[in-house]
């Protein structure tokens, strides 16, 4: 099957199965990286960095980026279109049956199971990224400091990205990243 058709199918599939917020698409993108080799898991971390500091929902940014990396601008269009199409279809249906949907018992049961499942999928990706990215000792120390800091005080997400970018450039300048 050609890449464009495969891109459409894979991202349509993400649109149907990803639950629970901006990062919910990541487990699926990680799975795609492993199965199709369109991009590496290191590329994925870079895409995630850029998507987090670019306007727009992270899930959409990631889809556009992954599509672009795989098949250029047309790939970006297809991936973006494919990931939002299920949303359009599903929301259109739910909008019509709004009152029934809200009070349906199976809906609430399903949601009760989906939320911890989404959290588990993200936890697994977090662990995999932690072990596959070359943080080295120095990166691990910085990560630990960030996490401790997050418990002490709630900071803006952009703050972590900004500070860590500066740290990366400075440490790199002094050849300290490999430590």
């Amino acid at each position: 099957m050609n890449t464009i058709a495969q891109l459409f199918i894979q991202f349509f599939h993400i649109g149907i199965f990803s639950f629970g917020g901006g990062y919910a698409t990541i487990p699926f993108l990680y799975d795609i990286a492993e199965r199709f080799k369109w991009y590496s898991t290191t590329d994925l971390t870079n895409m995630l960095s850029i998507s987090s500091i670019t306007p727009g929902p992270v899930g959409i940014n990631m889809a556009t980026f992954a599509g672009f990396t795989t098949a250029g601008i047309f790939g970006a269009l297809i991936a973006t279109f494919a990931i939002v199409l299920p949303s359009y279809l599903i929301v259109s249906i739910v909008y019509k049956i709004l009152d029934k949907f809200k009070t349906n018992k199976f809906v609430s049961g399903t949601i009760k199971a989906l939320k911890p499942a989404g959290c588990a999928l993200l936890s697994a990706v977090g662990l995999k990224l932690l072990f596959t990215s070359n943080l080295h000792l120095i990166g691990t120390i910085i990560l630990t400091i960030f996490i401790i800091a997050s418990f002490v005080k709630k900071l803006d997400p952009l703050f972590y990205l900004g500070i860590s970018a500066i740290i990366g450039v400075i440490l790199g300048h002094f050849h300290m990243i490999g430590i």
């Binding site: 990062y23 959290c119 943080l135 990205l161 860590s164």
Partner: peptide, 18 residues
């Protein structure tokens, strides 16, 4: 180097989301 650094920030954000 910049991306290596931002990678740490991203893992932190993932952790916070989880």
């Amino acid at each position: 180097n910049l991306f290596w650094g931002v990678g740490i920030g991203v893992i932190t954000l993932l952790f916070l989301a989880i």
